[in-house]
């Protein structure tokens, strides 16, 4: 198990290197730089600024400097926000995303899991057909449509909840963004849990357990729960990655100060260090989530454990 972990962490390094390099190359290949603006700067000032951010050095030296700083966990200074490091910007934005993302996933797991289980107990009945029909709808409506619609209904028409802004620790400000982000995943999770539960309950070993005279709750909890969780766990890897990108939209719509907005404004303003920093951070988070998923998998399934 320890070897598996080490191995995974080692393979993560080249992946991160690829991501960092791709981001760096793309940005520097592009025509134009961060300090080309409409108003022409005095050449001396332009030079001073560029040398401050080492933009006057040859590209390969910039690249090595960048990798060296990355290795130390330093994303460098922001080009846009003077005297602020990218690390500080991320540290400001990340809690917002962590709050919305975890609230959204929790909502999706609770709502989707419950719906899927209820549907699975009576496949074909209205308790199955109705929520699953809604789930198909939920999958087809993107976050950037549901988010404005939620604002329209709950903030603008009903005045129940605020339409945006961020107040740390306020659940009223958290609820709508989290809900918008959660809806597609709720739909996916409901479908996955339903299918997995129906499949698990149809397994011959469930019949074996029934034939032993075990009560239903023991059969469900001891014998059927784990196989039901497996597909859900494997969905959580991509889901967590999706929540990251989804939060870009949600932050935009609700005007929240998270790293998604930091990234978009950074990209529009050619803030190289912000863009590469956030991209590498996203990559690291995705790798981390996938590792977590694999660990869950191994924890749940002895056959996977044997292979790792």
């Amino acid at each position: 198990m320890l070897r598996f972990l080490l191995q995974r962490l080692l393979t993560a390094i080249p992946t991160l290197l690829v991501i960092a390099t791709l981001a760096f190359v793309l940005l520097h290949l592009a025509p134009g730089g961060p300090f080309d603006s409409d108003k022409v700067l005095v050449p001396q000032i332009q030079h001073a600024i560029e040398s401050r951010y080492h933009l006057d050095e040859p590209l390969w030296r910039q690249y090595l400097r960048y990798l060296g700083e990355l290795a130390r966990g330093d994303f460098g200074p922001s080009f846009q926000y003077r005297n602020t490091s990218v690390n500080e910007l991320i540290a400001q934005g990340l809690p917002v995303d962590a709050a919305i993302g975890s609230a959204a996933l929790l909502l999706a797991l609770l709502l989707g899991g419950a719906t899927g289980l209820v549907a699975a107990t009576r496949p074909g009945s209205w308790r199955d057909q109705l929520p699953m029909g809604l789930a198909v709808l939920g999958i087809s409506i993107p976050v950037f449509v549901t988010a404005p619609l939620l604002i329209l209904v709950f903030a603008m028409r009903l005045h129940w909840l605020p339409s945006g802004d961020w107040v740390a620790g306020s659940w009223r400000h958290l609820l709508l963004p989290a809900l918008a982000l959660a809806l597609p995943y709720t739909a996916y999770i409901a479908r996955i849990v339903r299918a997995a539960a129906i499949e698990a309950l149809g397994q011959p070993y469930i019949r074996t357990a029934r034939a032993k005279g075990l009560p239903t709750h023991v059969i469900v909890l001891r014998h059927a729960l784990r196989p039901t969780l497996m597909p859900l766990v494997s969905f959580l890897g991509p889901a967590l990655a999706g929540v990251l990108t989804g939060s870009i939209v949600v932050e935009q719509v609700f005007g929240l100060p998270g790293i998604g907005r930091l990234f978009v404004t950074g990209a529009l303003n050619r803030d190289y260090t912000v863009v590469t920093g956030v991209t590498v951070l996203y990559g690291a988070l995705i790798i981390g989530f996938n590792l977590l998923v694999d660990l869950c998998y191994a924890w749940l399934d002895p056959r996977v454990r044997a292979r790792t």
Partner: peptide, 14 residues
């Protein structure tokens, strides 16, 4: 008591 047909699937792999 019942002994099922396929021992591969009659035992819970988990």
């Amino acid at each position: 008591a019942l002994v099922s047909q396929d021992p591969m699937s009659a035992l819970n792999p988990y």
